[in-house]
Nucleic acid binder design. Structure first.
Length: 297
DNA sequence: CGAGGTACCTGACAGC
DNA sequence: TGCTGTCAGGTACCTC
């Protein structure tokens, strides 16, 4: 589900609810062990238990939680992953996981977090994931937070929210279609299918245009459009087109402002032309053939 | 290097 | 009702 605005919303919500708390309980269903967890379970549980959460960070679409023992907990939500924070229910964890009324059937991973001051009630972090494309890692003994040994993380390009004109020019210096470049996390981190389509529309650039053929002016328009749609996405707490919810279960509302994504067959808000959908880099791609021109070369 | 396909999973929905 | 095909916010891996 989650692109940069959704992950950023989650991270901002997580900070006040779990920073400084101590991990006092850990439960994983079989599907968490078989699909989500990418670290040896023993290493994982020994590494997280009784550690406090120092902070919560975002890098691209990854959620990063340094712990008090210098290990780092890393989450990636894949397509349908959710992190939910709930008040701890006063029953045993095992009972909760066998009781569908208390824990959703797609919640496969659950951590209990205690407030060390005792001032606030315990909370639970639920990792819920229908399609099981999410990933959870624990990296022990981290010296440099920039060098986490997690697939994809070290290779991330500049964050889309902060990318400079020079960095953007480097990313675009390729014969690949603009949209393929935007989706490539090693070139620009954080943009996914929704915001790539919306940004191309906003910049009036056809998604199949080769990156290297963009004029300087088009490049700057696209860079600005990306930041604009991402910031708007954050402002509206993300896009909830199917599964996405924030940590309190609430939906984002940016989908109300989408102008091309999943608007196939509808009239362009700018010119009235019918929005079309094509396949590009294996992904559904939506655009206005009139506003965004011919593309290619 | 890039493009295109497949795979990982489950569920929703359209059409027959 | 139930089958089949298509689609879904992501990423990794394979072959050409």
């Amino acid at each position: 589900m989650p692109e940069l605005p959704e992950v950023e919303t989650i991270v901002r919500d997580l900070r006040p609810s779990i920073m400084g708390r101590v991990i006092t309980g850990l439960i994983m269903r079989a599907k968490a062990l078989n699909h989500l967890l990418k670290t040896d379970p023993r290493t994982f549980s020994q590494g997280v238990m009784n550690q406090s959460v120092v902070t919560v960070l975002r890098k691209g679409k990854y959620i990063i939680m340094p712990l008090s023992n210098n290990s780092v907990l890393v989450f990636h939500l894949g397509m349908t992953g959710k992190i939910l924070i709930k008040d701890s229910i006063d029953v045993d964890f095992i009972d909760q996981l066998s009781n569908n009324d208390l824990v959703d059937k797609h919640t496969h991973f659950l951590m209990e977090l205690m407030d060390p001051s005792g001032e606030y009630e315990d909370v639970e972090l639920h990792f819920n994931d229908v399609r099981l494309f999410g990933n959870i890692w624990l990296v022990p003994d981290v010296q440099n937070i920039e060098e986490l040994d997690v697939p994809g993380l070290k290779e991330l390009g500049p964050d889309a929210l902060g990318i400079s004109d020079k960095e953007f020019a480097i990313a675009m210096s390729s014969s690949r279609p603009v949209k393929a470049i935007l989706l490539d996390q090693s070139k620009i981190a954080g943009v996914g299918n929704i915001y790539a389509d919306e940004a191309c529309f906003c910049a009036k650039i056809h998604p199949t245009t080769k990156g290297s053929s963009l004029t300087e002016e088009q490049q700057e328009r696209l860079r600005f459009a990306i930041k604009t749609v991402l910031k708007q996405g954050i402002k509206f707490r993300g896009s909830s087109t199917s599964d996405y919810v924030s940590t309190d279960g609430g939906e984002g509302s940016y989908q109300k402002y989408h102008r091309v994504y999943q608007k196939t067959g509808q009239n362009c808000v700018e010119c009235g032309t019918i929005i079309v959908r094509i396949k590009l880099s294996g992904r559904s791609t939506h655009f206005c053939p009139s506003c965004q021109g011919e593309g290619k070369a």
